[in-house]
């Protein structure tokens, strides 16, 4: 199970994460956060491979990608 979380209130809407996602599932939300930016979000989480490139590219430490151990 892969869990991807966005700390929306820290996102400045730079979009760098959207350019590095190999699956193209990281997008900008239509809503705005408290700072007035459209925050990054993920549309089809089930497609996430947990590669973490979005987190690696984020200058503001908004994204965390967690690969949970599979339940047997």
């Amino acid at each position: 199970m892969i869990k991807i979380t966005f700390r929306e209130e820290r996102c400045k809407g730079c979009q760098l994460c959207t350019t590095v996602c190999p699956k193209g599932i990281v997008v900008m939300a239509g809503r705005t956060n408290e700072m007035g930016y459209h925050p990054a979000t993920v549309t089809q989480q089930e497609k996430c491979t947990g590669c973490g490139l979005c987190a690696l590219m984020c200058p503001d430490m908004v994204i965390e990608v967690e690969r949970e151990a599979k339940a047997v």
Binding site: C14, L16, G52, P59, D60, M61
Partner: peptide, 26 residues
């Protein structure tokens, strides 16, 4: 396993840098 978690040596405060400035990555 977590990717993108905050290093202990980096305070949990927002950077004042402009959107997309790569100082944050450094």
């Amino acid at each position: 396993m977590k990717k993108g978690s905050r290093p202990a040596s980096l305070k949990d405060v927002p950077f004042h840098y402009c959107p997309g400035c790569t100082h944050g990555i450094a």
